[in-house]
Design a protein around this nucleic acid. Structure first.
Lengths: 334, 334
DNA sequence: TTGTACGCGTTATCAT
DNA sequence: ATGATAACGCGTACAA
């Protein structure tokens, strides 16, 4: 801890500049000089201070990764993806759980700034467009979001297309009265739009009562929403959900209400989180390559950093339909 | 970024010392002086550099959290617990996924040292006792482990007691031929010991062929192990597993082999990860309070830090039996 | 109550 | 090829 470059220099009988040179192998150094320095280094077990280094270089080789909550099953793989390329590039990552709270997100961005991280990754941010733009303007940021992208470097998930596809799949299976459980935090809701478009393009008139939404996404709220939905619209034979968590809740509610899945009613999700395949019955859903997404957003951040913040980019990722047993062909006559 | 304490001092017409004083509010400062400084600070949007601060104070207010892999469903809640108390105490956490590789663990510990973190938390370390002791000797460390604890500050999970309890539960349900799927990475295996003891204390002679083990813990390996187990010991009516992941695999293997759970065979896990309750059938298991554990191990690290590394402590956490449908009373006659 | 000046451990600009 | 030394931004003896 206490052995500094000066100690090494003294021990090797050279100047600190020389030690610094062999450390970062720059310039030409006489073989024997280098030898003396190297042995001094490991005799003293000298470790350069990343702190002091950062102070002068202005680079910390650390980044901040702000996510809503690591216990949301969507994020662990994303985090692993980010970390794997970070590690490869000798970056370390500060994990920040914003607790699904925009305020905490802002606070963390602030803390990260004072820690002088080289960049910040925002995933599933709960900030509004204005705040997001502001943040992107003053920090080096890349982000992953399912909302309509803004300025800056962003990776977007095509929720509209995703729900269009999975809803179309249900229509092909013979379903007509199809419900949707959405997430109502933002005015925009791409996924609900995709659901509606699929019905419209199949000449099905979307009923208002087929739509319910939750403020908080969880298994419990999915369960409650499903009860509401099936009570107000018993004619429904299929339910599309904003994501798998809500779909799990829907599955449970169906059991409660004595509706068999998939014979009586189909249930589909979005994300293909681990365990979607283990649900009872296994869940039909739209797969998102989360690990790859994590890698992408970190690679994008590296580009932002390289361009000193002056880098904009938009990549859209299309989810992929995964058909499992929770969505069968319509069996029951209406 | 470029505005320093000197700029603030100049703007406020005071010395840097004074600015530093109001920043850390130490000593008495004339009201109007403080006022001038404060306004200068936010006119210039000055943010103190945590880097420079750390360089002089020797404290970074950062810690390293080394885990095997965030995608293992055991860890997200632990991480959240760690982070929540870290946040409370103004610490930030570097998340390090060691990828279940002792070598990477060591590398990360090294990197964390050069980043001069104030302490390191090791969870589910794959290092051997010697390496662990060595690490604890040179860094400020607290750790969470299910293996027999060593020196240093550690939180242990009572695996022996846990498997004793859950196996006893199966015996009470009428099971006699009970198998175990263990994890064979370490010589010691507390959990398998608890399983054996439960049988012995119930006068059941443990058969070697009732024990299989896996080198890697996952759903797939659990599935394979179960196939092996049931092939070599078809008389088995209950399977205990090292953890829930293996139990999930066992559940799937039973379906494949046409063995109904719980009517034909009982399956139980360990950990009570999220989704254990959602499995088909819901899994009987031993619950571990992971979020609380995360908080505990971070609080323990704070004590280690406060004692400048000279702090030893051992807390043992006892898991709790959670009975669900995967373990019913024995129905089939043998 | 407030200011000066040095140290924290590096890197990098000049010389030599 | 190597060496003095000035930054980097802050905290804090020691003075005033």
């Amino acid at each position: 801890m206490n052995v500094t470059i000066r100690d090494v220099a003294a021990r090797a009988g050279v100047s600190v500049r020389t030690v610094s040179r062999v450390l970062n192998n720059q310039g030409e150094i006489a073989a024997d000089t280098r030898e003396r320095v190297v042995t001094a280094i490991d005799e003293l077990k000298y470790r350069p201070s990343a702190l002091a280094r950062s102070l002068v270089s202005g680079k910390t080789h650390s980044i901040g990764l702000i996510i809503p909550k690591i216990t949301d099953p969507f994020y662990p793989e994303v985090v692993l993806g980010v970390e794997s390329v970070a590690r490869e590039q000798n970056y370390n990552v500060f994990l920040c759980n914003a607790n699904e709270d925009p305020q905490q997100e802002l606070e963390y961005a602030d803390v990260m700034e004072s820690k002088q991280v080289d960049g910040i990754i925002l995933c599933g941010s709960r900030l509004n467009t204005e705040q997001l733009d502001h943040l992107a303007a003053q920090h080096r940021v890349s982000m992953l979001t399912s909302r309509r992208p803004h300025t800056a470097a962003v990776i977007g998930i095509q929720g509209e297309v995703g729900l269009f596809e999975i809803t179309s799949h249900l229509v092909r299976q013979g379903h007509q009265a199809i419900g949707h459980i959405g997430w109502s935090v933002y005015a925009e809701n791409e996924r609900a739009d995709g659901y509606s478009r699929a019905l419209r393009e199949n000449s099905i008139i979307v009923q208002d009562r087929w739509n319910v939404s939750v403020a908080v996404v969880s298994i419990e709220t999915g369960q409650q929403a499903t009860r509401r939905l099936l009570e107000q619209s018993p004619e429904i034979t299929a339910i599309t959900c904003f994501n798998d968590l809500l779909a799990f809740g829907a599955l449970q509610a169906c059991v409660e209400l004595g509706r068999r899945v998939p014979q009586d009613i189909a249930v589909v999700g979005f994300d293909d989180i681990p365990y979607a395949a283990l649900a009872n019955p296994p869940l039909t859903t739209m797969r998102i390559p989360r690990y790859a997404l994590g890698k992408m957003v970190m690679e994008m951040l590296l580009r932002v950093i390289a361009a000193d913040g002056k880098h904009q980019e938009l990549q859209l990722v299309k989810p992929e339909l995964v058909v499992r047993r929770s969505s069968g062909p319509l069996e029951r006559s209406q």
